[in-house]
Simulated assay, not measured.
Amino acid sequence: MALLMEKGAEPQTERELADLDAISALKESAAIELKEEGNKYVKMGKKHYQQAINCYTRAINQKALTDTETSILHSNRAHVNLLLGNYGRALSDSEEAIKLSPTNIKAYYRAAKASLSVNKLVEAKAFSEKGLDQDPDNEELKKLKKQIDSQISELQQREAQVSKALKTAKDIMSAIEDRGIKIGKATFQELTGLKKPILDNDHMLHWPVLLLYAEVMSSDFIEDFCETDIAEPLPWDKENAYTRDAIELYYEAGSGVCLSKKEILSNLLQGTAASHIESFGDEDTDAAKSSPKEISSVGNNRSKWVKVNERKTLHAVLKEPNFIIPGIPVFFVVSKKSSFYKDFKSGNWSLPS
C-alpha cells in the first residue's frame, strides 16, 4: 500500500498509484473544508479569529492545493492577523501569497496595509503600486496608496524640519566656539522659557538677554540683542532710582561648569523638530575636547560680581574668561543711588536659592 511506502520511493504498481491519488484527494478535500471552516470563524467575530488562523494553517499544511488556492489561504490568514494587530505575521503571509500568485490583489492590499502599520512606508508604497499595476481601478488600493503617499509626504517634511533645526543648531554652536564663548546650565528658564541665540545672514549672533534688578528681583527681557550692540538698559522704577546715569550692570563670575558641545547642541535643539535627537555624529567623538570645564570661584569662595564696561560690545563682554553664560546672557542691574548698592558691592548679597 502507498501508506507503507518508504519516503522518497516511487510508486511501482497501479494499486500504489491509486492509493496516492486517493490520499491526495483526501488532503485536498480536507484543505478545502478547513478553508471554509476558517472563513466561517472569521465571520463569527474576534473571539473566533484564532480558530480561523488555526484552520488556515492546517489547510496550508495539507500541501494539497494549487499555488493559487494556497495563495488565497495565506492571504486569508494575513487578513485575520491584520485584524488582530499581528502586523509582522500579516506581512509575511501577504508576501508568501504574492510569491505563490502574483495576481492576488488582496495580498498586495494586505501587504501594503501591514507595511504601513509597522511604518515601512517605502515597502507599503511599492506593494500598493504593484497591486494597482494588476488592477488599476481597485478603489481600496487607490485609497490606501493615497494614505501612504500622505504619510510619506509628512515624514519627508518632518525630516526636512529636523535637518534644518540640526543645521541651525550646529551653525550657532560653531559661532559660539569661534568666539570662545562659554555656556553653562540655564538658570532662569522660568523667566525666559526656551529662548536661544540666533545667527543672522551676516553670521552675527543675536542673544536674548535677561536683566535682573538685584534689589527687588524684578526683571526685563530683551529678545534680540545683537552682539555688536552696546548695552543701553532703559529706566525701570517709579522713584527714578534707576535712571540711566545711576545704574550699573554686572555679571556673575565664580564657580561654574561649562557645558560640553553635545550638551549645548541638545539645549539649542529644545523645542525644535530635532529635540529628540541624541547623537550628533562627529560631535560625539570629540568628547575630550568639549568636556565640561570648571572655573574656580574667586575670592573667599564667593561669587564675584563683575562690572560691565558698557562701552564694550555684547560680544566683547561675553568673551570675558570668567563669564560662563547661564544659558543666555544675564546681567544684574544695580542703582548707585540705592542703599542696596553698598551691600551688593561688598559681596553681602547673593541670589536667592
Rank of each mutant, 00 (worst) to 15 (best):
K99L: 10
Y56N: 07
E248L: 09
I328M: 09
G256Y: 00
S218N: 14
A241H: 13
I247A: 02
P352F: 04
E129C: 07
L212H: 00
M44I: 07
A253M: 00
I295E: 10
T285K: 08
Q151R: 07
L268E: 00
N54W: 05
A316V: 05
A22N: 09
L314C: 03
I148M: 04
N201V: 15
L4Y: 11
S279R: 15
D343E: 15
K182H: 06
A52T: 06
K63I: 08
V333N: 01
Q161N: 14
A316L: 11
K289F: 10
K43G: 14
N240V: 09
A246T: 10
Q189A: 08
P235G: 01
E139G: 03
D224W: 13
E10S: 09
K47M: 07
V122D: 13
G256P: 00
Y56G: 07
L17I: 09
L83W: 00
Q189W: 04
Y108W: 04
N348A: 13
F225S: 08
Y250A: 08
A97T: 06
L73E: 00
K142D: 03
A25D: 12
Y108I: 04
A18Q: 07
D284W: 12
Y341C: 11
G256W: 00
Y108A: 02
K196E: 08
S163I: 02
A97W: 01
P197G: 04
G254A: 09
Q51F: 07
M173N: 05
S101R: 15
K164D: 06
R110W: 01
A78H: 01
K293T: 12
I152C: 12
C258A: 12
W207P: 03
F332Q: 00
Y56D: 08
D202T: 14
A246Y: 06
T243S: 12
M1H: 11
A90D: 00
P235I: 02
N54T: 13
N300I: 10
K319I: 13
G45L: 11
T272H: 03
G45T: 09
K319W: 07
S101T: 15
P102K: 10
I72E: 05
L116E: 03
Q134C: 14
L269Q: 02
D220Y: 04
L121N: 02
T168V: 10
Q62H: 12
Y109N: 07
N201P: 02
L234I: 13
W236Q: 11
T272S: 11
A231I: 02
G45P: 03
T57G: 15
L166K: 09
S163C: 06
A186Q: 07
S350C: 12
E239C: 11
H315T: 08
